[in-house]
Nucleic acid binder design. Structure first.
Lengths: 341, 341
DNA sequence: ACGGTCAATGTGACCGTTAACATTGAGCCG
DNA sequence: CGGCTCAATGTTAACGGTCACATTGACCGT
C-alpha cells in the first residue's frame, strides 16, 4: 500500500499511469464489457499500484444515486426502536446500502432531520417515529418517494393515521396484544388489568385498544388502565393502582420492563407471581426468560421488521424485492409468570 | 412548497431566477459578507420560491469535507456496543455531523467496512470493536488520520494492544471492576468468584484481570473463573460451577445479564440473595434496579463515551474541542444484591 | 480631475465521477 | 477491394457545488 501523498489518487491518476483515458478506467472499475483483457490488466495493475479507490461522493453526484438510505429516528434507548434501528441498518447493508442515521430527541427536530438527509441525497428514507407527535411534524413536510415508516403501525385496523399515504412496516401489535390477553382469558382469568405505555406512543395505543376489544369480545369487564412510561420504575409505581382494581387476577403490561417493575412491586408487597397475580409482558427482551419468575410475553422479530422495511424501499427504488410481508407476526412466549386463575 | 419538476432546483436555477450569478447565490447561502442586502433579499426569495436546498454531495465533493463521520461497529445487540453507537451518533449530530453506520457481523467484514466508509469520504471514523479478533483485522488496514476506537480499552494499563497508535476512548473498565470487587471485600467477603465474559472481548479481559489483581492485592484467594457469553442463559448455566467453589460467598459477574441468569439459577436452587450469596453486576442496565433483588452493579455512562469520542475526532479534524477526558469514570451503584458476608 | 481602494459581483476552472457521443481500426461480405 | 459492422477506446459535457481571480463602480484624498 503506497503512502498517500497529498490527495487520494483519482481516476485520472490511474488513467495516466496505465496510459489510457479516464473513461477506460471507469469502464474497468464498473466492469463493463468490451475491454480488451490486456488493457483491463494494465488498468487493474495501476489501480493496485496507486491504491486507488473510487470516490463515492463523486460517483453519487454524477450517477444520481448515493447507495445510502437515511434513517431518521426518534432517538430513545427503548428496546423496540433501538432494535429496529439495528434491523434496518443490517438489512440495508446486506442490500449494499449504508445507513446514514439522524437521531432526534424531540419531535421538532424531525423537519431538520428530513432536510438534512434530503440534502445528503440519500436514496431512500426509513423513519422510526413511535409517537403520534412525531408523525404530525412529518405531515407538514414533503417526503421523498422512497420512504417508509418503520414500526409506527396505525392505532386502528382500518389504516387510520396522520399520514395515510406513507407505507409502513412493523410487527402486528394488535395481534400481539390479542395473543397476550387471550392467553390470560384461556387461563380462566376474568378480571384482567392493563398497565399501558405512554398514550402518545402508537404501540401503546394499539396494545391498549386491542386489550380493550379482546376483553369486550369475551364479555369481560374492562377496568381502568394505569399508564406508565415504559420504564421499570413506572411499573413499580403502578403496583398499588393495579391492586386497587377489585378482583384483579392478571395484568397485561405493555412491555417487559414495566412488567418487571410491577413484579418487583408485587413481591415487595408479599404477593406471589403467578400465585396471586399473573403477569404478561410485551417485547421479549433477552432478560425476560430469566426474570423471577420467567416472564410470559410477546416476542417481536425486529430483524424481520428491518428486512421488510429495506425490502419495501428497494422495491420503491426499482430494485429487486423479496416480497417481504409488511406486517410481521408476533409470537406468544409462555413462561411461568402466568398460571390458571 | 412548489412541486419539484424533474430535478431538484440547483444553484444555477436560483441564480437565474434572482438575476444574479451562481456565485452570488453561493455567497448568500454561506452567508459570506459583502452582499448588498437587497441582493440577498432577492436571492433568498428565489430560494424560497424554488424550494432550493444545497446539495450536500456536491458541496462535499468540492469542499473536501462531507460533515459525516463513519461509524464502524461489530454489530451485536449487546447493551454496551448498542449504547455507544447511540452515544456517538447523538454527539456527532450535536456537533453538526451525521453518522454513516456500517455494521458488521463478523470480523472479516471490517476491511470491507473501512473501505466502504473511506470510499464514502467520511471525515472521521469511529470504530466500535469490542473483541480482540476485530482489532486484528484492523491492524492490516490503513486507517484515516481522524480515527478513534470507542470502548475497546486496552486489556492492560500500560496501553498494550494490537494497534497502539490508535487513540481510544471508553469507560475505565479496570476501575469499574475494582470498585465492584472492593465493595465485596469491604463487605467482609473472603472468597469472591468471577463470572467472566467471553475471553475474546476486551472488556471481559480487563474486568477479569482487575478482579484477579484486586483479590491478590487484598491477599485473598483467586478461585478459577467461569466463562459466560454475556447472555442471561450463560449466567444461569454457570450456577453450579460457581457454587462448586468451596467457601464462595460472593460473585462478581462481568455484566448484569449474566448476573440476572445467575440469580435465577441460585433461586432455583433455593438459595437466597444476598443471604447465601452476594452478586455484583456490571453495566447498570435499566432493568437492574428492579431485579429481585435489585442488583448492585457498576454504572457506565455511554453517552459520555460518545461525547468523548466525537470530541476527540473533532480535535483531530481541527475543530474546537471540549477537552473531554478519554477515560470515563464508572460508578458503583449499591443496591440489595450484596450484603455483609 | 484622477489614480487608488474597496465593496459587490461575475467568470472560469476544478472536485472526481458517469453518460452520451465521436473516433478508430479490424474483420467481413459481396 | 470498398463499404459496413462492431469492438475498443477517446472526447466532451454534465452533476452541483466551491475557489481564485477578474471586473465593475462608487467613494476618497490630493
Amino acid at each position: 500500500m503506497p503512502a498517500p501523498r497529498g490527495h487520494a489518487p483519482s481516476m485520472r491518476d490511474v488513467a495516466q499511469r496505465a496510459g489510457v483515458s479516464h473513461q477506460t478506467v471507469s469502464r474497468v472499475v464498473n466492469d463493463s464489457p468490451n475491454i480488451r483483457s490486456d488493457t483491463r490488466e494494465r488498468v487493474l495493475q495501476a489501480i493496485e499500484d496507486l491504491g486507488y479507490r473510487p470516490n463515492g461522493l463523486a460517483r453519487a453526484l454524477a450517477h444520481g444515486r448515493s447507495r445510502r438510505i437515511g434513517l431518521l429516528m426518534e432517538s430513545s434507548s427503548h428496546y423496540g426502536p433501538m432494535n429496529m434501528l439495528r434491523g434496518v441498518e443490517l438489512a440495508a447493508r446486506r442490500a449494499g446500502y449504508a445507513a446514514t442515521t439522524f437521531g432526534v430527541t424531540s419531535p421538532d427536530e424531525f423537519d431538520e432531520g428530513i432536510d438534512f438527509l434530503r440534502d445528503q441525497r440519500v436514496d431512500a428514507l426509513a423513519i422510526i417515529a413511535p409517537r403520534a407527535q412525531s408523525l404530525e411534524s412529518l405531515a407538514r413536510v414533503t417526503l421523498p418517494q422512497a420512504c417508509v415508516l418503520v414500526g409506527s403501525m396505525p392505532p386502528d385496523a382500518d389504516g387510520f393515521g396522520p399520514i395515510p399515504s406513507l407505507p409502513r412496516v412493523g410487527v402486528d401489535q394488535a395481534l400481539g396484544a390479542r395473543l397476550a390477553v387471550q392467553h390470560l382469558i384461556a387461563s380462566g382469568h376474568r378480571m384482567i388489568a392493563h398497565l399501558a405505555g405512554p398514550a402518545d406512543w402508537f404501540d401503546a395505543q394499539v396494545r391498549r385498544n386491542e386489550w380493550f376489544r379482546t376483553l369486550e369480545a369475551a364479555g369481560l369487564e374492562t377496568p381502568p388502565t394505569v399508564e406508565g412510561d415504559w420504564r421499570p420504575q413506572s411499573g413499580y409505581d403502578a403496583t398499588d393502582a393495579l391492586l386497587a382494581i377489585p378482583g384483579v387476577t392478571a395484568v397485561f403490561a405493555a412491555n417487559d420492563q414495566m412488567a418487571l417493575g410491577l413484579i418487583h412491586g408485587l413481591s415487595d408487597r408479599g404477593l406471589a407471581i403467578p400465585g396471586d397475580l399473573s403477569v404478561v409482558g410485551f417485547d421479549d427482551i433477552p432478560e425476560s426468560a430469566h426474570f423471577r419468575p420467567p416472564l410470559t410475553t410477546v416476542h417481536q422479530d425486529f430483524q424481520a421488521v428491518g428486512e421488510a422495511a429495506v425490502d419495501l424501499l428497494l422495491q420503491r427504488l426499482g430494485e429487486a424485492s423479496h416480497g417481504s410481508p409488511q406486517q410481521i407476526v408476533p409470537e406468544l412466549v409462555v413462561r411461568t409468570s402466568t398460571a390458571p386463575a
